Amino acid sequence: MTATRSSDILRQVAVLSATTFMIIAAMVGTGLLGGTPVQELQGGALDADASFLAPARQAFSIWTAIYAGLIAYAVWQALPGQRDSERQRSLGWWIAATEVLNGLWLLAAQFTTLPMTVVVIAALAAVLGLTFRRIVRRPGRGVVSAILVDGVTGLHLGWVTLATVANVAAWLTQTAPDDWAAFASVVGVVVLAVVAVVGIAIGWQGRGRVAPAAALAWGLAWLAVGRLAGEPADTAIGVAAIVVAVVIAAAALVRRTARASA
C-alpha cells in the first residue's frame, strides 16, 4: 500500500461508472427496456441455431456469473482498503475498459450492423487478453482478490474468446455464398483446432488459472450440444467441440499442477 492519490478516487469512480454503463447497456441491448431480444437481432444471426459455431442458448447463462462478478468487483474495489492498492492501480482502468466494451457490443448488436459487432467483440477480446496478462504478472493476495479479479476476468476472457468465434461465424454465415455450407464441417473443425491452441496458450500463460479454461469448456460443451442435438446439426463439429473442451481443461490443470509442485 502507498499514499492515496487523487487519481485513485477517480479510478474507483470510473470502475463504478463503467459497471453502471454496462448494466444499462445490457438492459437496453437484451430488450429488457423494450428493445429486441438478442436472439432476434440482426435478422436472427446471433441466435443459437444461426451458425455451426454457435453454442446452445443455455451457454449464455454464464453471463449471470460474469455480470455478478463484475458488479461485486466494482463494489469491492471502491472500498477504502483498495483505494491505494498497487494492483488496483494496475488493473482498475483495464477492467473498466472491458466493461465499457461489453456494454458497447450489446448496443452495437441492437442499433448497428453485424460487422460492427465483430469489430467490438474483437476489441473486447483483445483488451481482456491484455488485462489478464497484467493480472498474471501482478499476482494478488487473498481469496477475494483471486475470485473477483483473477476469476471473474478469467471467465470473461474465456467466454468472450469463444463468443468472438461465434460472432465471426454468424457474420460469415450471413454474407458467404450458400455453397460454402458444404465446407462447414471441415472449416468448423479447423476453427475449433485453433480455439484449442488459443485455450492452451491462455491456460499456460495464465499459470494454470482455471477460470478461462472453465468458461471455454462450458461454451464448447454447449456448442457440442447444439450441433449434436440441435440445429444446424453437425456430428464432426460437435465431437470436435467436446475434444477441444477436454484438451483445454486438461492443459490448464496440468499447468496448475506443475506450478504447485515446482
Rank of each mutant, 00 (worst) to 15 (best):
L104Y: 01
L228N: 11
I66E: 15
A215F: 13
A250C: 09
V244D: 08
G226V: 02
R137T: 07
T112E: 12
E40L: 14
T161L: 10
T117R: 04
D84C: 06
W93D: 05
G103K: 14
A169S: 14
A3L: 10
V75C: 08
L128T: 05
V127C: 05
L172W: 13
M27S: 13
V100S: 05
W63R: 10
M116R: 11
S261W: 12
L114W: 02
A262N: 11
I71H: 06
L104M: 13
A123T: 10
A233F: 14
T153D: 07
A125D: 11
L33Q: 12
R209T: 03
R141Q: 10
T161N: 10
A215G: 08
I9A: 14
V187Q: 05
Y73G: 04
A48N: 02
R256S: 08
E231R: 09
A146W: 13
G238W: 01
F52D: 14
S7A: 15
V246W: 09
W93P: 00
L155E: 11
A181D: 11
A14F: 15
T4L: 12
G34K: 14
V189L: 02
S145A: 15
V189G: 00
E40D: 12
V189C: 12
A181V: 03
W204Q: 09
A96D: 03
D84W: 01
G208K: 08
F60M: 01
G219A: 13
G92W: 06
F60W: 09
A221C: 15
Q110A: 15
R141H: 10
I135A: 08
L53G: 04
I248N: 06
G154C: 07
L10H: 01
A258G: 07
L155C: 09
W222H: 07
V168K: 04
V28L: 14
Q88W: 12
V118K: 09
D178P: 03
G69Y: 03
A74L: 10
I23Q: 10
A18E: 06
W180K: 09
W105D: 13
I202H: 05
D8S: 07
H156S: 00
W76Q: 09
A97Q: 01
V28F: 02
P55G: 05
R89Y: 12
E99S: 15
A211V: 02
I71M: 00
A74F: 03
P177H: 02
G44P: 03
W180G: 01
V225F: 06
S85H: 08
A184R: 09
A163Q: 10
L216D: 06
V75I: 12
I24Q: 15
R11D: 07
G31M: 05
V120G: 06
G230E: 11
L46R: 05
T257N: 15
G151Y: 08
A48S: 15
Q174Y: 10
W218I: 14
I62A: 07
M1I: 11
I200L: 05
G43Q: 13
V210R: 14
I23H: 09
A214S: 13
T235Q: 09
V143T: 06
S185Y: 08
Q12M: 12
L114D: 02
I62N: 00
A26F: 07
Q205L: 02
